[in-house]
């Protein structure tokens, strides 16, 4: 049976792993290559690196981090942050990334999804979607934000559900759905958001933002229909190990890999 994936996310800034709260106030959380090896030993199903500064100067540092990780860790690795061109995608794949996550550039120019999926295959094109939630009194709506790597990001006015439909249509292989409201808050994934998106996503959806306790993971999977769950703080600061999360999910009859 296809298992649900547990994915630690490593936000990388100038070659170090950092972790913030609601995308700001970053504190040091370790060496990316070492942490990748550690999580692999722990039973992580995949790894995600987000280059959260991603100026062109810093890009080479990230390529080196990816390259070193891929030499030592033999599980899937996704890299995101500041990917804007086909050449950026190509460089990360050549460095050893298995998937590349695009975000701001996809919103600015949706054809970028289609072009990169055609060039490299849908399976390696992940679209990261960062959303903020609002409540219009009757129901929740979610709006896409871009440039979230710095200064809290920019709101686009783009409806998250409409964007999901478009992303699927354009040939993305996977969606990482990140709730900015929940990011680093340890208050649980946005289940309403996951439910709303899962109706339209015929590709895998990775829940991101908010994992704080064990039941948050099972909620995202059982109630939110997530195919995978991504978390950062909960793992970096050793609140729970990946094994503990997997044992818990197993006890809830959710298929995981041991």
């Amino acid at each position: 049976m296809l298992t649900k994936r547990i994915i630690p996310c490593l936000d990388v800034k100038l070659g170090r792993v950092v972790k913030g709260v609601q995308f700001l106030d970053h504190v040091d959380a370790g060496d990316p290559v070492e942490l990748a090896g550690y999580y692999n030993q722990e039973g992580a199903d995949e790894l995600v690196f987000y280059d959260i500064t991603a100026s062109s100067d810093d890009r080479n540092i990230m390529i080196e981090v990816v390259s070193q990780t891929a030499e030592q860790v033999f599980i899937p690795l996704t890299v995101g942050g500041g990917i804007r061109t086909i050449e950026d995608v190509n460089k990360m794949l050549l460095a050893g990334a298995d998937k590349v996550s695009i975000n701001t550039a996809a919103v600015q120019r949706p054809e970028f999804i289609e072009e990169s999926a055609k060039a490299f295959g849908s399976q390696c094109i992940v679209v990261g979607i960062d959303v903020i939630r609002s409540n219009n009194g009757q129901r929740f709506t979610w709006t896409v934000k871009t440039h979230t790597g710095r200064d809290g990001g920019r709101s686009t006015g783009l409806d998250a559900i409409e964007w999901v439909k478009q992303v699927v249509e354009l040939g993305a292989g996977e969606i990482v759905l990140n709730s900015i409201d929940s990011d680093g808050m340890l208050s649980g994934y946005d289940i309403d958001l996951l439910q709303a998106v899962s109706k339209y996503a015929s590709i895998p959806v990775v829940a991101s933002g908010g994992a704080g306790k064990l039941s948050d993971f099972s909620d995202a999977i059982i109630n939110g229909n997530a195919d995978a769950v991504l978390a950062a703080s909960i793992f970096h600061f050793n609140k729970y190990s990946i094994k503990e999360v997997k044992n818990y999910l197993d006890s809830k009859d959710i298929a995981v890999r041991f």
Binding site: M1, L2, R5, E174, I203, P204, D227
Partner: peptide, 10 residues
Amino acid sequence: LKIPHMGWNQ
């Protein structure tokens, strides 16, 4: 089915 079939399977 969700396509691609992506992840760990037996």
